[in-house]
């Protein structure tokens, strides 16, 4: 049976961006739809910490 997806998917701004192209879909398959508990965004939200909009699931911050 497949793992349940991340419960924060609908409200996650980054998840919406990952639906943009096939290349970005790897983030969904590796994090959002499987082992989401290791997602940095998910972990910070659980701790009640602010989640920067440019934070990727692996902890990398998108910069210009």
């Amino acid at each position: 049976m497949a793992d349940p997806p991340c419960p924060h998917m609908k409200s996650c701004e980054m998840y919406e961006i990952f639906t943009f192209s096939e290349t970005l879909a790897v983030w969904k398959t590796r994090y959002c739809q499987s082992d989401y508990s290791r997602c940095e965004r998910y972990q910070r939200a659980l701790k009640g910490q602010p989640v920067p909009v440019n934070l990727l699931p692996n902890g990398h911050l998108l910069e210009k």
Binding site: I17, T23, L24, V26, W27, R30, P50, P52, V53, N54, L55, L56, N58, H60, L61, L62, E63, K64
Partner: peptide, 24 residues
Amino acid sequence: PDKAPALSGKELEDALLAATLAAF
């Protein structure tokens, strides 16, 4: 304060592609 830059369009696409290739 939140230090996240406002990214859009091409610069966001480029940053995402680079980060995705670096990760996977």
